[in-house]
């Protein structure tokens, strides 16, 4: 079997002065040549994991191997093989896009002429050829992100870390960054992508690990992940909030988890979709409060994390 592009084993990291560890037994195995999504809410430890794997930060305990080299003992070798796109676009705002790429090209030890031609290639490829001469301060969020991506690809890295590439971007910027990332994947680079959005991981990643309080709590393909956690959800909409309130006890009785209500809507997790759907519809019809709209769907990330949160809370209560 081929060696994984990234492997992390029991990484622990506690920030100076912090009460709880940012990473608490972080394990990860990323096979080469795929986009791997590291999915977690704000504060889960995504950035910490990326910074450790990219040799920017030391780990307290555990071991990590990236592109065949140990991040603790062979940091310089790792750095020759990776690219990093940090959570905030790390480009010089005073310089133009082209000047940035030439600068980073020179720092990757390309000669001046080669650095310039490589900069032009990359500007073209990321749709920045026209804006290449403008100072980065005048770029939109999506353009900065793409420039940031381009700067990480000056010498094709074996492994690319991309930390929350679309957080804070508008839908247009998000689309631009997604298509840039898709193109990279086609090129065969291994990418570790962190995100807070299930949709993004779903769109781009071949496999996903879910990070929760500094530890991977679930791992698999996007479909596997959604299937194992919480099953499906049924959304019901009623004529008004009063009707929804009336229907709630009946709906809750047939649900496999806590229902969530919002004005005239009720959402409930169910394990067996068809059976639950029939049971709820029949019971509501008998009560005389029929929904105006019924929808069966996969859980959203928010629901997945709320579910995890509840389980985590239950465990802590048991422990206490």
């Amino acid at each position: 079997m081929a060696e994984p592009a990234i492997s992390a084993d029991g990484i622990r990291k506690t920030y100076r002065g912090a009460q709880t560890p940012a990473l608490n037994g972080f394990d990860l195995e990323v096979p080469g040549g795929m986009v791997y999504g590291l999915l977690g809410p704000n504060g889960a430890g995504k950035t910490t994991a990326v910074r450790i794997l990219a040799t920017l930060m030391r780990l307290d305990a555990g071991r990590a191997v990236v592109a065949g080299h140990d991040v603790s003992t062979e940091a310089a070798r790792v750095r020759q093989r990776i690219g990093l796109v940090g959570q905030y676009a790390a480009v010089d705002e005073i310089l133009s896009g082209r000047q940035n790429l030439v600068l980073f090209g020179r720092l990757n030890h390309l000669g001046q002429a080669r650095a310039v031609s490589r900069a032009d290639e990359l500007l073209e490829r990321f749709g920045l050829a026209e804006a290449g001469g403008k100072p980065v301060a005048k770029y939109s969020g999506g353009m900065r992100r793409r420039l940031d991506l381009a700067a990480s690809l000056i010498v094709s890295p074996e492994v690319l870390f991309v930390d929350e590439p679309t957080t804070g971007l508008d839908p247009q910027g998000r689309q631009e960054v997604w298509s840039a990332l898709r193109e990279l994947v086609a090129g065969g680079t291994t990418i570790l992508l962190t995100t807070q959005y299930l949709e993004e991981a779903d769109q781009l990643a071949h496999r996903i690990a879910m990070l929760w309080h500094g530890r991977v709590v679930s791992e698999g393909t996007p479909d596997e992940l959604k299937a194992t956690i919480g099953g499906d959800w049924i959304d019901l909409a009623f004529a008004d909030a009063d009707q929804a309130r009336q229907a709630l006890p009946t709906v809750a009785a047939h649900a496999d988890g806590e229902p969530r209500t919002e004005e005239h809507r009720i959402s409930v997790p169910v394990r067996q979709r068809t059976r639950a759907l029939i049971a709820i519809s029949t019971a509501l019809a008998a009560d005389g409060v029929e929904p105006v709209e019924v929808n069966l769907r996969r859980p959203t990330l928010d629901e997945v994390f709320l579910d995890l949160h509840r389980k985590q809370g239950d465990k802590q209560e048991v422990a206490a």
């Binding site: 910074r51 990219a54 040799t55 920017l56 310089a76 750095r79 020759q80 990776i82 690219g83 990093l84 940090g86 959570q87 905030y88 676009a89 790390a90 480009v91 010089d92 705002e93 980073f104 720092l107 990757n108 030890h109 700067a151």
Partner: peptide, 13 residues
Amino acid sequence: AKGVTDRFRSLPI
């Protein structure tokens, strides 16, 4: 603050 320092630190220099 802009992360430029981090980028330098992730380069083979």
